[in-house]
Structure formats: structure tokens, C-alpha cells
Design a protein around this nucleic acid. Structure first.
Lengths: 204, 204
DNA sequence: AACCGCTGTTCGTTATAAAGAACGAAATGG
DNA sequence: CCATTTCGTTCTTTATAACGAACAGCGGTT
């Protein structure tokens, strides 16, 4: 147990690449709302292994990591560095990493639908508990955000304008400025968000 | 041998990540003029393994690839995609991959000196057989190239100007335009090249 | 309850990645 | 010419990554 071959590696199991891979993989998996089984199917990696990787109990093979990062629409390096990006949604950088929870822990964004999205559109599933606030820094110029409120009540502030939407309503607003989504209602809120980047089809 | 577990992987050994890692690793290693033993020492990976990796006879662990790509001053993704960058020297992208041989196979560039170079300077060892031509696309604006000819005779063309240097002479020219180094002499030529990026100390 | 479908975990097995030593082939040089 | 070094490869052994199946923990039905 003690005597190992590698004289350099401090820690036998954890991948030695400082930032724990596991947490990042898990964050991404959850951001896509995938279960271990689903990611296993998508990536071709046994779910038992994914489980172990997420808990840093194994030192995965390169091919395994490649398959996982492909299924998660990202690159190996991106997964490696773990980049919290510190903020919430930051898609400026393509293949940016969507993140799970807002700072207050009350909001949750998840990428919706099939993987392999085209660049121009991004779908999200948005959950906000009472009082939750999601603040996003500006997206690329021309980006429009569509918010379809499934249940609850949400207030959107973009620039200096503020609007309130109730269940069944849809809000549409520019997302190339700082914007906020707030749950001021009495219960949890659920919405579907679409981000349309400028390129083509800014409408619909 | 035949029945494998992974239903997805076509080829058991080769890392499944399309571009053969091995060739890239080897190209980088040779660009740094390292032997297997030396790279082994620098990276902490057994040289036998590096040998196998270079011949795509193994499916390396992530940590192994990380250690190698660190020692080779690059990133895992860079190594993965193999990116020939199609051209010869292309340092625009930091952590760019220096390449071994010119298209005609007659020139050879090798990074000189210790690893962990600072950004602003790059040292190369340059060998050109008779008739060899090294054509480089422009480096970042303001970059100046210094060529100290150790032996042989070289002709440098930068923009529209052409000069010839003999052994013991040094040429200095702008490298932010397409430039060519040609060995028109009767024997092989050997030179040391320094690339000075604009930032500070364009002279020295 | 017992029964599903789902989650994530653990277990047993097999193939193999990694290390180090040993090897043969060039290159060096005395 | 035969020793020495250095190169890359091959060999042997050990630890373990990956798999699939079996498992435990939960909600939700009938």
C-alpha cells in the first residue's frame, strides 16, 4: 500500500492533476440533468466507473475521460482545470461550462434536451426556490433570452426594465446586458429558458 | 483477445481518440530534442511507457498524459487533437506546438535549452540539409528573428529582401511577415535561431 | 405491505497500464 | 578492435481501471 512505483505522485488515487476531476464531472453531469446510467449510455463508460471517477476513487484512462468530456460537450482540459468560472452562466467562451447553482444556492440551471446543441440556441431548465435570484452577466451582443414560465412567478430585470411573469406566460428580453431573474412568489418557480444568439434566427 | 468488454471502442489499443496521440507526443518530444529517458525523467513517466504510448500500443491513464503534456509544455487537448497546424512554426497561439520537419523533410527545428521558457523569447536549433527550405508564416507583430549561423550557408528572405549569411555570421530580420530560410550551400547548414516577441527586450 | 422503476453504490473478474530491469542496436572513443 | 555509453524496445510483475451484475435506498403506484 505504501510503497508505490511512481516517485512523483503524491497521492495514488486522486488523479494528481490537482483540481479534482470528479467534482467537475459531476457538476457537468448534473447540469445536463443526467443520471449516472444516462451518462453511461451516452458516453459508453460504465456507470460504476463514472461513480468512482466522481468520487475521485480512480485514476481514469485517457480514453475514458475523452468519452466523458465528449458526452458532456466539453474538452478534457476544461474538465481538468475545473474552472469554477466563479460566476453563474458564462457562455461567452464556447464550450463554456454551465453551472449548477446560483450563489445563494436557490436557483438551478440545467441544460435541456439532447446533447450536441447547435451553437445558436441554448435551452435551459430553470428552477428557483422562494427568494432565489439568478444574476447573469451579459451574453454576446444581440443575444435574446426567452423565458417560459411553467409554474410560479418570476420577475425579470434587464437593464433598467423590470417585468413580472406568471405561470404560462413567456418573457422575452435582451440578454446582452446584465440581467436578473428573481422568484418573488410564494412558492418555487419553474421555467424553461432559451438563449438565442445573434447569428441567425434571433426570433423564434 | 477477441471478446472485449467495451462495446463501443472499435480498437482496443489505440486510444480511440481518433488522432493518434503517439505521433504527437513523439513529435513534441523530438522537437524538444529529448530522448525517451530524458522525457521520462522530466515527466516522471517510465520510458517504457512513453515508448508504448508513442507507438499507440497502450491506452494511457489520464494522469500519465497530464504529466507528459506538462513536461512538453502543452495541454492535453492540444496533444489530443494532434493539430498539425499544417504549417511549420506557428507560435501565435501560446503553447503552440513546434514542429519537427519542414514539408520537404530537409529542415529540422528543435527547441533549445531548458523547458519552461518565458514567453518573450524562443530559442531554436535549426538544421537544414542541402536545398532545404523553411517557410514560416508571420509571427506576431513586432517579432524579430535572430539567426546565428554555426556552419554552412543560409539565405533568408523576409518580405521582399534577401540576404545571405555564412558560418559565424548573424542575421536579424523581421519575422512578422512571411519569411523563408534556404540552404543554398553545398553542405548541410546549422544555425541557432532566436525569436524575440515584441513585449520587452526586442534587442539583446 | 409487496412491487416496481429509478437512483447511486459495491463486488468479483478480467484485461491491462505502469514501473523497472534486461535486452539488443547504434553511436562513441580509447 | 573491443569497451562504454546511449538509444529504443521488450519482458516480468504488480496494482488497478473497466466492466457488468448484484446490491441497497428511495419515491410512487396499484
Amino acid at each position: 500500500m505504501s510503497i508505490r512505483r511512481g516517485p512523483k505522485i503524491a497521492n495514488p488515487t486522486s488523479s494528481e492533476a490537482s483540481s479534482d476531476l470528479g467534482k467537475t464531472i459531476q457538476r457537468l453531469r448534473k447540469a445536463y440533468n443526467l443520471s449516472l446510467g444516462e451518462l453511461s449510455e451516452q458516453s459508453g463508460v460504465a456507470k460504476s466507473i463514472i461513480s468512482q471517477i466522481e468520487r475521485n476513487e480512480t485514476n481514469p484512462t485517457l480514453s475514458t475521460v475523452v468519452r466523458l468530456s465528449r458526452a458532456l460537450e466539453t474538452t478534457v482540459d476544461e474538465v481538468l482545470r475545473g474552472e469554477q468560472t466563479s460566476l453563474f452562466v458564462d457562455h461567452q467562451t464556447k464550450s463554456g461550462i454551465p453551472i449548477l447553482e446560483s450563489q445563494d444556492g436557490l436557483c438551478r440551471l440545467a441544460i435541456v434536451g439532447p446533447l450536441n446543441l447547435v451553437e445558436a440556441f441554448q435551452w435551459y431548465d430553470f428552477h428557483a426556490q422562494v427568494g432565489g435570484v439568478l444574476e447573469s452577466s451579459p451574453h454576446p451582443l444581440g443575444t435574446i433570452e426567452h423565458l417560459y414560465i411553467v409554474s410560479g412567478e418570476l420577475e425579470v430585470t434587464t437593464g433598467s426594465e423590470t417585468k413580472i411573469g406568471k405561470a404560462g406566460e413567456a418573457l422575452r428580453y435582451r440578454a446582452d446586458v446584465t440581467h436578473k431573474i428573481r422568484n418573488l412568489g410564494t412558492g418555487a418557480a419553474h421555467a424553461v429558458m432559451m438563449l438565442a444568439l445573434k447569428q441567425f434566427g434571433a426570433q423564434q
